[in-house]
Design a binder for these strands. Structure first.
Lengths: 160, 160
DNA sequence: TGACAATAGTTGTTATAACGACTATATTTG
DNA sequence: CAAATATAGTCGTTATAACAACTATTGTCA
C-alpha cells in the first residue's frame, strides 16, 4: 500500500502518458482545494456552487445578471440554474425580478444579506487559499496559474 | 462582458491574491478536463466516479480490494461507496464476496466485463488527454505535474 | 470471559445534480 | 401580419451525493 509520490507503475497499469499523469494530478489537487473550501463554507450553510454564484453576483454589481449569464460564469456548469437560484432566493441571499423590456429574462441580484455573508467570508477564504498553497513560492504560483490557464483554455469564462 | 484572460479587476472584487487566482484557475481547468472525460464516458454509461473505481480495481489485480480501500484511492472521496458499488455490481462490472477470515470485510473485484469495457476506453481516453493538453509541451507538462502534486499534497493517495 | 471500543459495511433520509420536455416571450421572414 | 424559429426560463423525473444513524464482526483488556 505505497503512499509515495513517485509513480510505482502498479501491476496492470497501461503505459501512463505524461498527459494522463497531469490529468490525475489536476483532478486530485482541485478536489483537495475544493474540499477545503467546502469545509470552510459549511458553517454558513453555503455550498461551493452557491458561494460561486454569490461572488459572481457581487462582481456584477447592482445591475444584476440574467439567469443564463450566471450559468456561463460559473466555475462548474450547472444545467439547472433555476432551482439553484430558487433555493438561494428562499434563503434571502439573492432577489429576482422579471424584466419589463424583455419579459423573458429574469434579473438576479445579490441582497444585502448575501453581501454581508460574503464579506464575512472574504478574509477566511483568502487565508485558506494561502494555507492550501503555501508550499509554493510566488514565482511558482505565477507559473502554475499561467500553465493552468493554458491547460483549461477550452471553455473560457470570466469570473466576477 | 470581457472574455479575456487577463484579470480586469472587476467592480466589487476584493484584492485578488495570487493564491485565489490559482484556486480559481485550478478548479476551472479541472472542470474542463473532467467534463471532457465525462463526455467520452457517457456512451459507455459510466460516470467518472465509476470509471475511476474500475481503474482502481484493475490496478489492484485479482486480489481485489476492501470497500474502504477503494474509497481511499478515489480521486474525489465518496462517502457512500456501498451504493456506488451496488450499482456497479448490478451492472456486472464488479463482483463482491465477503471474506472468510474477517467477516466484516467485503472484497471487491473487477469482472471480465469490466475489464473489457475499460480496455476499450484506454486508447480513447489517452487520446483525449493528449488533445486536452496539447497546448503544453512535454517540458511544461512535467513542470505542471510537479507543481500540481505539491499543490494538492494534503490528502495524498495512490491511484491504480 | 464479558463489557467496551474499534472497524467494516449497510441503510434511511434529505438535498442536490442530471436529463429532458415544456411554456412564454421575442425575433425573423415569407 | 402570420408562421416559423430562437431565446429565457421553468418544471417533472430519475439518479446520485451528502449526512447521519445503525448492524455485524473483531479486537482489547480488566
Amino acid at each position: 500500500m505505497p503512499n509515495k509520490r513517485q509513480i510505482t507503475r502498479p501491476a496492470a497499469a497501461p503505459e501512463t502518458t505524461l498527459e494522463a499523469q497531469v490529468f490525475v494530478s489536476m483532478l486530485r489537487a482541485a478536489d483537495a482545494l475544493a474540499r477545503g473550501a467546502e469545509a470552510l463554507l459549511k458553517p454558513s450553510g453555503l455550498s461551493a456552487t452557491q458561494y460561486n454564484v454569490l461572488r459572481i453576483l457581487r462582481g456584477a454589481g447592482p445591475k444584476g445578471l440574467a439567469c443564463r449569464e450566471v450559468g456561463c460564469r460559473m466555475i462548474s456548469r450547472d444545467p439547472d440554474i433555476t432551482r439553484l437560484l430558487d433555493r438561494m432566493e428562499s434563503r434571502q441571499l439573492i432577489s429576482r425580478v422579471r424584466e419589463e423590456n424583455d419579459r423573458r429574462v429574469v434579473k438576479t441580484r445579490i441582497t444585502a444579506e448575501g453581501l454581508r455573508i460574503l464579506k464575512d467570508l472574504d478574509t477566511p477564504m483568502a487565508d485558506l487559499h494561502c494555507r492550501q498553497l503555501h508550499q509554493l513560492s510566488p514565482k511558482e504560483l505565477r507559473q502554475l496559474s499561467r500553465l493552468l490557464e493554458r491547460a483549461g483554455a477550452q471553455t473560457q469564462h470570466s469570473e466576477e
